[in-house]
Nucleic acid binder design. Structure first.
Lengths: 165, 165
DNA sequence: GTAGAGATGTTATAAAATAACATCATGAGC
DNA sequence: GCTCATGATGTTATTTTATAACATCTCTAC
């Protein structure tokens, strides 16, 4: 499932280096505050997840990791790091892509809503309260107790629409 | 990932045989109307998907199929049938489970919203207009064109809550 | 009846995820 | 500082999920 997207556009114009640095700093702070151990490996995996705003597969991250180190790493290593990062709310898993993406606002709510562009592959995290409450209401109406809502909307982002009119 | 759930409860009380027969009849009608070929194989796979209201993995269906026939079937056979059924809107894929479930109202809208119970494993399909419009509005606000919204809500259904208070 | 499209069969392989167990590192308590 | 227990990582093997490439069959339209 190598989804080769042309170029990411959704966030094309921003200072991505800053964006990553920011994410790492917030992760450091959050983990310190919680007494969670953001080890070197986990931090590196987090950085690799953040290397773009496109969800990345575990094996893609694995490759990066292996390449950086020269030696090859086992899948489990990456999966374990990802598991930790997801638990800490630093990374989200995009179910419909079997891939992972950095969380835009760790520490906060976490409804897990994404607009996934078919064009560029970017996944924009949103946190729309009306979606959240609509889901909650629908569930309550059926006596269903919500634990983890997943919203993944496939479509085409603004930039990609402009490119291909 | 063998999610062995105790017993399905969400739809425990209904006449499931009737439920399946109904689904097959509607599928026949829809495909006839569209000129789509609901072959014997595809119909059998549809029936197996409907064997419960729990999403079933492709390989589980494959096993059933092989067992029924004595001879073993190839995965691709099942995947191709499922692909057809999903295209026709007769079956939905639950992304977060890598599994398939019969569509409650084929031919109709198809927003693809599910309440997935962690207890019994049942996936109740809902079609809540306020969820649909909330997603649509959120997308529009960001210039995003929606193609396929996916909503999969993990939680605990009414019956399972009553069982484990 | 025949051609052609679409459906299925067959074999092999890729991609994604986990299991079981060994070893290593870190930090709390002494 | 040392020790031990806990948690993190390494290693090897395997399972689960999904697709590729190509051959053969089977309907349907003509």
């Amino acid at each position: 499932m190598s989804t080769d997207h042309p170029t990411p556009t959704l966030h094309a114009r921003h200072d991505h280096a800053h964006c990553v640095a920011d994410a790492l700093t917030r992760a450091d702070a959050l983990c310190a505050q919680r007494g969670a151990r953001l080890t070197t490996l986990r931090r590196r995996v987090l950085e690799l997840v953040w290397s773009s705003h496109r969800p990345r597969g575990a094996y893609a991250i694995l490759e990066d990791l292996s390449q950086q180190d020269g030696k090859s790493t086992a899948p489990l290593t990456v999966y374990r790091a990802l598991e930790f990062l997801v638990e800490q709310g630093l990374v989200h898993r995009i179910e419909s892509l079997n891939a992972y993406v950095g969380c835009a606002s760790p520490g906060a709510s976490h409804s897990g809503q994404f607009l996934v562009c078919e064009g560029c592959g970017d996944a924009a995290e949103i946190d729309d309260s009306s979606i959240r409450t609509a889901i909650e209401s629908a569930a309550i109406a059926r006596g269903f107790r919500v634990q983890r809502p997943t919203v993944e909307v496939r479509g085409v982002c603004k930039d990609c629409q402009e490119k291909h009119p």
